[in-house]
């Protein structure tokens, strides 16, 4: 087992455990922190897959900006474990059972898929580099990229309008 495999397993286990902790934590602040762990783990996977640009963007945008926003909102509302609304026990069980069944069904469906010989490139290939991504983005995906800016603009306007005190 080389370093790559070790890292892969370590990151995978970290991601899964952190994800479970996100769901089960009583305190919303803890959930946010566990979610940041998940994002770090996933960024680690990106680096293993040699997608450096995405790894960095993931850290900056998700773990940085978005999670800070979440923390900020939580603190603004002064939420903690005591204010956590409790759900009906049966509905909770039903939710877990439904999620688990979905996992089972998906695994069952994918188990027979013939993918044994398909490998994901690890640590090689240069499509994840900023230069290549940037060339493709500003050549082939020019219009979607510009439209994204419109989306952002409308999101900003929307957030301002909704958050405005009236």
């Amino acid at each position: 087992m080389g370093t790559t495999q070790v890292l892969f397993w370590f990151l995978s286990v970290l991601a899964l455990i952190s994800a479970i902790m996100v769901v089960v934590s009583k305190n919303p602040v803890h959930s946010v922190l566990w979610l940041i762990f998940v994002f770090f783990a996933i960024s680690g996977h990106y680096i293993l897959l040699n997608a450096q640009f995405l790894a960095i963007v993931n850290l900056i945008v998700y773990a940085g900006a978005i999670m800070v926003l979440f923390l900020f909102v939580i603190m603004l509302m002064n939420l903690n474990a005591d204010t956590e609304p409790q759900k009906n026990k049966w509905l909770k069980i039903a939710g877990v059972v439904a999620g688990g069944s979905l996992l089972l069904v998906l695994v069952a469906a994918l188990k027979h898929a013939d993918m044994k010989n398909q490998l994901a490139d690890m640590g090689s290939g240069d499509i994840g580099l900023i230069r290549n991504l940037g060339l493709t983005l500003f050549n082939d995906y020019m219009i979607p990229f510009e439209i994204t800016s419109v989306l952002f603009l409308s999101a900003i306007v929307g957030a301002v309008v909704i958050g405005k005190k009236d």
Partner: peptide
Amino acid sequence: LLMVIGILALF
């Protein structure tokens, strides 16, 4: 929940 059950059924 209903939506997930629906997806499940489709699968």
